[in-house]
Design a protein around this nucleic acid. Structure first.
Lengths: 145, 145
DNA sequence: TTCACTGCAAAGTCTTTGCACATAT
DNA sequence: ATATGTGCAAAGACTTTGCAGTGAA
């Protein structure tokens, strides 16, 4: 069972650093994994389906914690709130700055660039949850119509 | 003189769309060009050195306008306020998610990726003011120490 | 003269902080 | 038992909106 595994793993990760396992932390991590690309607000609503008293403050604090533990990642896709995903879910976002649509692509397509940046700038690109902005196919078609 | 040229060009761009040339608009554009990577707050402070009564609301509205006109660009480098640069100043930002440092690199290094994205996804990458996150050389060195 | 633009104040969105209470260990 | 974690309320950072008055064309 995935949830049981995940619970034990989370507990260990926390305990190794002198932190405590709580229902809130488990619920937030579960919500991120279930939703993908969710904002703190959306994650909070999801958690509140199960535990209505969980406060959005706790969601913010927990997302921050999980991010530092490397269990989730966040990206700023556009203007508003950031988007959180589980670490396992690796991908690059193609964000259209005209219509706002978001397409996903495998991050393997970034490997050449990753190598170049490492060689020339000593910079280790994190391509696992990246946002690239530009114009999508539909908007380009419309423009030329 | 660059300023005079710029003033005429801005006036024409605005008039072509039924908009008006104002001192505020010129000052905001000048400030973006002089500062590079500036937040709305910083741009406002710069403008207020010359014209102390200019309001931050006007700065926000003007930045939005100049962005839509293609004269400036903005990027979300991290958590806080966005960073504005003049359109001529093309580059990619390498943002370190550990120490927060920002390195610039020429966007020509993105051309292979740009071609791939266009061919496979019909997506026209805008590499002119992009932010890539990862770990910088110094942080990597420190990590292995 | 006329309507786009500005300044001001107020509100809106997203996030953090302080503190007393609860609870995992 | 103890000190980490939580909920609540309040404040903070950043941005937008409404409106009356100003000024570019």
């Amino acid at each position: 069972m995935e949830t049981a595994t995940s619970r034990k793993a989370l507990r260990k990760t926390l305990h190794d650093r002198g932190m405590r396992m709580t229902p809130q932390r488990q619920l937030v991590l579960d919500a991120v994994r279930e939703l993908e690309h969710a904002t703190p607000e959306q994650i909070c609503q999801r958690v509140q389906l199960t535990a209505p008293t969980v406060n959005i403050t706790t969601v913010y604090r927990t997302l921050d914690l999980l991010d530092r533990l490397g269990l989730v990642r966040h990206t700023h896709l556009g203007h508003g709130a950031p988007s959180y995903s589980a670490h396992e879910h690796e991908h690059v976002h193609l964000v259209c700055h005209r219509c706002g649509s978001v397409t996903e692509m495998p991050c393997e397509l970034m490997s050449d660039l990753t190598g170049t940046l490492r060689a020339r700038y000593g910079f280790a690109l994190d391509a696992s949850h990246l946002a690239l902005s530009g114009a999508c196919r539909d908007c380009l078609t419309q423009e030329n119509a």
